[in-house]
């Protein structure tokens, strides 16, 4: 059974269709990339799934439950984690406090007024930090971290509610080539270990072709291709609207 299923998702802004009748699904444990030109509707699609936007029509089924139009926090409670295109932490907190805040929220303890937060879920928070290799930085102010490390902490936060689906908006944006591969390898490992599904958008074709199990392509708000790396690479339409000749990235040469 699919973890997430989009059915006829449509959204327009001021009469302009940003996303038009998009349908696809993500299977359990699948690593799915969503690519397409700027303005193709990827972000709109993403923001409808994570609850920041409500679709005009269409359904978003998460384990069979329609989550279209729910608030981001409610979608999170259903087991959908997310990371942001521009990574950031809660800047006034230490690294571990960031993760603890997410764990506290997951345990529905955010309105507790008395027992200090520092003693809550610390072991579990350290364990999550260990999984992303950040345990040594646990008590450092999070705002001092290098960007690549911020991405890791954000991943630990996203894993705090044991998600079954992880939404990652351009997870490697702003990173150098080797950092990109390091981060995505880490995600891929965690995904396999925990059986999570991942939907991610990405402009780095190197990453997409190396890691994605399947690729969906959006252009002008419509789904124009859905398939494995090889079939997308050879798709004439995708080449025309998105790849170009491929001389600005490695790995896509026909």
């Amino acid at each position: 059974m699919s973890v997430l299923e989009l059915r006829g998702l449509t959204k327009s802004f001021g009469g302009v269709h940003a996303v038009r009748d998009v349908s696809f699904e993500i299977g359990a444990g699948e690593f799915l990339a969503m690519i397409g030109p700027n303005g193709a509707g990827k972000s709109t699609c993403f923001n409808m799934i994570n609850g920041q936007l409500a679709p005009d029509s269409g359904d978003i089924l998460c384990d069979g439950k329609n989550i279209a139009g729910l608030a981001p926090r409610d979608i999170w409670r259903l087991g959908v984690g997310r990371t942001f295109q521009v990574a950031a932490t809660f800047g006034s907190m230490t690294v571990i406090e960031n993760v603890q805040t997410a764990l506290i929220s997951h345990a529905r303890e955010s309105y507790r007024l008395w027992r200090p937060a520092a003693s809550r879920h610390r072991t579990r928070a350290l364990e999550l930090l260990r999984q992303v290799n950040m345990q040594d930085a646990a008590d450092r102010p999070s705002r001092e971290l290098a960007y690549g490390d911020v991405k890791r902490v954000e991943l630990a936060i996203a894993l705090a509610n044991d998600p079954k689906l992880l939404l990652m908006d351009e997870p490697t944006a702003g990173m150098g080539a080797s950092e990109r591969h390091g981060l995505i390898e880490l995600v891929k490992r965690l995904v396999v270990e925990r059986g999570i599904s991942v939907l991610f958008t990405e402009h780095s074709m190197d990453v997409v072709f190396a890691f994605a199990d399947r690729i969906v392509v959006l252009a002008r708000g419509r789904l124009i291709a859905d398939g494995d790396a090889a079939s997308i690479r050879d798709n004439v339409q995708v080449r025309e609207v998105y790849f170009g000749t491929g001389k600005t990235f490695a790995g896509a040469s026909a």
């Binding site: 397409g36 030109p37 700027n38 351009e170 944006a173 402009h203 074709m205 609207v241 998105y242 790849f243 170009g244 000749t245 491929g246 001389k247 600005t248 990235f249 896509a252």
Partner: peptide
């Protein structure tokens, strides 16, 4: 952050 075609 822009598509390969635009980069070109």
């Amino acid at each position: 952050g822009v598509a390969p075609l635009i980069v070109e």
